[in-house]
Write a protein that binds this DNA or RNA. Structure first.
Length: 558
RNA sequence: UGGGGCAUCGUCUAAAGGCAGGACUGAGGACUUUGAAUCCUCCUAUCUAGGUUCGAAUCCUAGUGCCCCAGCCA
């Protein structure tokens, strides 16, 4: 069991566990994360993973990884693999406690037989349509199935033949005999088994009957001696059924189901259906597209496991449905990368600068520290030459109020280099600025002139001759609506400019950047060398998140 | 309209009858070789109406609003 960081800050589930420990109801806390392998994990799952593994760590218990693989028509090995990879990447370790609900199929079958013997389950021949008719509605009770009164012997025989494959798919179900008049629809004789000739990723063609979620989940929890079975709010209505099974079966333990509110994040969608649709309709480049809220996507974008854990910690856990502001996530990754990412310089939209008083051909290697607060991170050399690029938006011919970057006659500092003064502006026939003629103060080498004069602006820059050209991908939110799933047509809210690809001019050290490395491009944001796209000597950078931009705020107000 | 849940700053989330606290956001300032980071200051909340109580976010009553449930999905 790994424990990434100490994580107190309690929630209502911790309170329940504290009470159970205090009363002696449980000695060791055991939780589980139970994904269905029918899709990729997303940040909502990360909340659950952090909760369950976090509890195990806090109480020195353990957390199992259990795949809820009871529906072979939807589940695939690809998803099993990706889920394990994602949980590990997030920083959690289930040790030897990897389980599959399908491991329990035999035991589940035996319990079903016992339920039949106890007169509490029966084989029903109603079609799916008929079952729906018989179920009643929210306000009216259901009708009992005509097959409800079959004898134990007949049920046993029929159930055995269901398993043996004697009946066609969908022709029969095994149902619990509970109460067709219950106001809780889950208790109106729920199906336990359906007949489905489908190849299962783990059991192959051994079975043609498969257990339903409700029948499998609680018993699986019990087999694994889970003490606290934590799930999302929509399963609250299932808890009476969860308990009914455990109360009516000779199970080894009766775990406690606890529900919490799932995560919703602004400017994205979280439903598996919608995410799948985005992938299948090529709105994104795949499950791991850096704009996706999947763990694979966030990982490729450059989010760190620590930042996701910190985010989970900050949003807390409760039963209130909420829509968490995505800036919380963005700030979590800024915090992590601010502390740990090397600073480098890269110009995204270049504007040429000619330093008139710098000799042609002269190259000076200047020392530039990698982190302003962590000298132990070392430094690299950046070449200074007569022709440079600066950021286009760092120059204004007619400066706005409070603009203290470069403009005609004004002086700024080039980071780690010299003070630079703009002498004149060169334009093309169309009136576009194509070049700046400037001079530097040779006395100001390193960035501090001996006369002690100050400048308000410091600019990043790169030597034109030495610049490495690399693809830089500027990612923005996938949707331009705070809650795209709310209205119905979420695709109408897709942000058309969620990806901008451009050719950056980067400082030479970046040519050696390896896929998987993080950087701060100073004054721009945090970037990540895409592990999938980067090649040796040809990195591709994803923008994880911009830096906070006070200037944009000021400029926006003017 | 049956049943199950949930209502606290803009957003999340604490407070188990005793000063409504924290984080993020926002506003202002200090510092700054990143308009970043850091530091300081400040603003903003108990769904409504009654009741119990010396005292209510918390207990009671009656409302209101939102979410979930009619898969042989999970």
């Amino acid at each position: 069991m790994s424990t990434p960081e100490a994580t107190p800050a309690g929630n209502f589930i911790h309170d329940i566990i504290d009470a159970d420990l205090a009363s002696g109801k449980v000695q060791q806390v055991i939780t589980r994360f139970p994904p269905e392998p029918n899709g990729y994990l997303h940040i909502g799952h990360a909340k659950s993973i952090c909760l369950n593994f976090g509890i195990a760590a806090k109480y020195q218990g353990r957390c199992h990884l259990r795949f809820d693989d009871t529906n072979p028509t939807k589940e695939e090995q690809e998803f099993i693999d990706s889920i394990m990879e994602d949980v590990r990447w997030l920083g959690f370790d289930w040790g030897e406690h990897l389980y599959f609900a399908s491991d329990y199929f035999e035991q589940l079958y035996a319990w079903a037989v016992e339920l039949i013997q106890a007169g509490k389950a029966y084989v029903c021949d109603l079609s799916a349509d008929e079952v729906r008719q018989y179920r009643g509605t929210l306000t009216e009770p259901g009708k009992e199935s005509p097959y409800r009164t079959r004898s134990v012997e007949e049920n046993l025989e029929l159930f055995g033949r269901m398993r043996a494959g004697e009946f066609p798919d969908g022709s029969k179900t095994l149902r619990a005999k509970i109460d067709m008049a219950s106001p809780n629809l889950n208790l109106r004789d729920p199906a336990l088994y359906r007949i489905r000739r489908a190849h299962h990723a783990r059991t192959g063609d051994k079975w043609c009957i498969y257990p339903m979620y409700d029948w499998a989940h609680g018993q699986s929890d019990s087999i694994e001696r889970i003490t606290h079975s934590i799930c999302t709010l929509e399963f609250e209505n299932h808890r009476p059924l969860y308990d009914w099974f455990l109360d009516n079966l000779p199970v080894p333990a009766h775990p406690q189901q606890i529900e919490f509110a799932r995560l919703n994040l602004t400017y994205t969608v979280m439903s598996k259906r919608m995410l799948r649709e985005l992938v299948e309709t090529s709105q994104v480049e795949g499950w791991d597209d850096p704009r996706m809220p999947t763990l694979a996507g966030l990982r490729r974008r450059g989010f760190t496991p620590a930042s996701l854990r910190a985010f989970a910690e900050r949003i807390g856990v409760s039963k209130r449905e909420s829509l968490v502001d995505v800036t919380l996530l963005e700030n979590a990754v800024r915090d992590d990368l601010n502390a740990n990412a090397r600073r480098v310089m890269g110009v995204l939209r270049p504007l040429k600068v000619v330093v008139e008083n710098w000799p042609e051909g002269k190259v000076e290697q200047l020392d530039a520290p990698y982190h302003p607060e962590k000298p132990e991170m070392g430094s690299r050399k950046v070449p200074f030459t007569r022709e440079l690029y600066i950021e286009r938006e760092d120059f204004m011919e007619e400066p706005a109020k409070k603009f203290f970057r470069l403009s005609p006659g004004k002086e700024v500092r080039l980071r780690w280099a010299y003070f630079l003064k703009c002498e004149s502006v060169v334009k093309d026939e169309a009136g576009e600025i194509v070049e700046l003629r400037c001079t530097i103060d040779p006395e100001s080498k390193g960035g501090t002139p001996p006369d002690g004069r100050k400048v308000k602006g410091t600019l990043h820059w790169v030597s034109a001759e030495h610049a490495v050209e690399a693809e830089v991908r500027l990612y923005d939110r996938l949707f331009n609506h705070e809650n795209p799933a709310a209205g119905g047509d979420y695709k109408a809210h897709l942000n058309p400019s969620s990806l901008e690809r451009l050719k950056g001019r980067l400082e030479p050290s970046l040519e050696r950047a390896k896929g998987g490395e993080h950087f701060q491009f100073e004054r721009q944001g945090y970037f990540f060398a895409d592990p999938k796209l980067s090649k040796d000597g040809a990195p591709v950078f994803n923008r994880v998140v911009t830096l906070r931009d006070t200037w944009a705020k000021i400029a926006g107000k003017e």
